[in-house]
Design a protein around this nucleic acid. Structure first.
Length: 296
DNA sequence: TATTCGTGGAT
DNA sequence: TATCCAAGAAT
């Protein structure tokens, strides 16, 4: 399994050394960032690039510097502040997490991995990330960046499989440093390496601290062979319609008559289906016949 | 396990 | 222009 031809300790030092010299100066990594700040950043970063998260994160933290402050506001306000980050159910879940933290954890983001995992919107990755980054615990933090680094450096393939496998988890666990603090630094360092150097397209292998040890490099950088990774067409989908409908609601600051929603999409059947979906998801609230608003 | 769920920038 | 990709979670 261990395809990398170097002692783990030397490997850790190489990656951590690279990180200390090259890490981005991100606000949620600041020494004054609270666990809540880390959690907010992790929610926003689920499938949304850092560059687009930065301004939204700053505005969010200024308005809701603690979970209790967010919990005291309406969930619709969270949806509105989410803006165009995409996947607005994340906003609703973050609000739900804030409520749970306020009511069940005394307003403090829980340190325990299992308690984190029980919060809405927190899956395996986010629980590990918050526990590791905010509380300096030792966890396998396996995101798309880390998966790609291991796929290349250890397994020798260009891209990991579509879904995370048990083998990947074992590999990541095998390379996790022993000490809590070192494991936490390793976790963020490998992730940053994947984000800045070992990128999906056009990796900067010449700048990589793993260059000499990388299994993919040694194999001659063979191209990806797996099944075609399905490109998600967006034009004309319910997702696009949902996005258009919700954009109207976000910008309205109040109740919106049906006609305003009807104007953004011509197909009445699809429009109704999309709106029903938004209501079912709790993103939109019907207030009367033909009148809607963000959830209060 | 396979789908669904936004949005915008890069190539 | 079309496709790919971005710190995933829930079902």
């Amino acid at each position: 399994m261990v395809a990398i031809n170097a002692t783990p300790s030397r490997l850790h030092s190489a990656v951590i050394g690279w990180y200390e010299a090259n890490a981005r100066d991100l606000p949620w990594r600041d020494s004054t960032a609270t666990p809540w700040a880390v959690m907010v950043s992790e929610f926003m970063l689920q499938q949304t690039p850092v560059k687009r998260v930065l301004p939204a994160y700053a505005a969010w933290m200024e308005r809701w510097p603690t979970p209790a402050r967010l919990a005291a506001d309406a969930p619709g306000e969270a949806v509105r502040m989410w803006g165009r980050l995409g996947y607005p159910r994340r906003a609703l879940r973050l609000h739900g997490a804030a409520v749970a933290i306020t009511e069940q954890h005394g307003g403090q983001v829980p340190e325990d991995h299992a308690a984190l995992l029980a919060l809405p919107g927190v899956g395996e990755y986010t629980a590990a990330a918050v526990a590791s980054f905010a509380f300096r615990q030792r966890h396998v933090v396996l995101d798309t960046n880390v998966r790609r680094v291991f796929a290349r450096a250890v397994t020798g393939v260009e891209y990991p499989a579509q879904a995370t496998t048990a083998a990947e988890r074992r590999t990541a666990a095998a390379y996790l440093p022993e000490g809590d603090d070192r494991a936490a630094t390793w976790a963020v360092a490998v992730m940053e390496l994947g984000a800045l150097v070992c990128t999906a397209r056009g990796p900067e292998c010449a700048d990589c601290p793993l260059f000499a040890d990388c299994a993919w490099q040694k194999a001659g950088r063979p191209p990806y062979e797996g099944p075609a990774r399905r490109g998600q067409t967006y034009e004309g989908t319910d997702r696009q319609v949902r996005g258009k409908l919700l954009a109207v609601l976000r910008e309205a600051h109040g109740e919106v008559p049906q006609a305003r929603l009807d104007a953004v999409w011509p197909d009445a059947v699809q429009r109704a289906r999309a709106l029903d979906g938004l209501v079912a998801d709790g993103l939109v609230e019907p207030v009367a016949q033909g009148v809607y608003r963000l959830p209060g």
